Computed example of a mutant assay.
Amino acid sequence: MFLTASLILIAIIVWSLVSGRLTRWHITAPIALIVLGMAAGWESSTPLIE
């Protein structure tokens, strides 16, 4: 659970740093967070909230 929460926090920080470049490629925050959520779900077998 800690790893998944850390990945989400890191993704938000990275998004804030490179959002200008990614929007030029038509990658928006919701798309990036959905992909991150899919990766976190693939990695984690425990729920974030119990």
Rank of each mutant, 00 (worst) to 15 (best):
G41S: 09
L48F: 14
V35D: 03
S45C: 09
L9M: 09
I34K: 04
E43K: 14
W25F: 14
S44W: 02
A11D: 06
S44K: 03
T4C: 07
V35A: 14
L3P: 01
I8E: 13
L3E: 10
I10M: 05
S6W: 06
V35M: 08
I8K: 15
I31K: 13
L36V: 15
L33R: 04
A40P: 01
S45Q: 12
G37H: 01
W25K: 08
E43N: 11
V18A: 08
L9Y: 02
T4I: 04
L7C: 13
S16H: 07
G41A: 15
S16Y: 08
R24M: 02
L33T: 10
S6C: 04
I31Y: 11
L22K: 01
L9I: 08
G37E: 02
I31H: 15
G20H: 09
S19P: 01
L17R: 05
I12G: 12
L22S: 01
A29Q: 07
L17H: 01
T23P: 00
E43H: 14
T46K: 12
L7Y: 06
L33Q: 11
G41W: 12
L17W: 01
M1W: 11
T4E: 07
L33G: 10
V14W: 00
A29F: 07
W25M: 12
I10D: 07
S45G: 10
G37P: 09
R24T: 12
L3H: 09
A29N: 02
W15M: 02
I10V: 07
T23V: 13
A39W: 02
T4F: 01
V35H: 04
P30H: 14
I13R: 02
A32I: 04
A32V: 05
V14R: 00
V35S: 10
A11N: 10
T28K: 08
L17D: 00
G20A: 10
A40T: 14
L7Q: 03
T46H: 06
W15P: 01
S19Q: 10
W15I: 08
W42L: 11
G41Q: 06
W25S: 13
M1S: 15
L3M: 10
S6T: 10
G20K: 11
V18G: 09
L33H: 06
A11P: 02
V14F: 00
E43I: 15
S44G: 08
I31L: 14
L3K: 13
A11F: 01
F2D: 13
H26D: 05
P30I: 09
L36R: 00
A11E: 02
M38R: 12
A29Y: 10
A29V: 09
M38Q: 14
W25V: 07
I34H: 02
E50N: 11
S19M: 13
I10Q: 05
L17M: 03
G41M: 10
L7V: 03
L22A: 14
T23Y: 00
S16G: 03
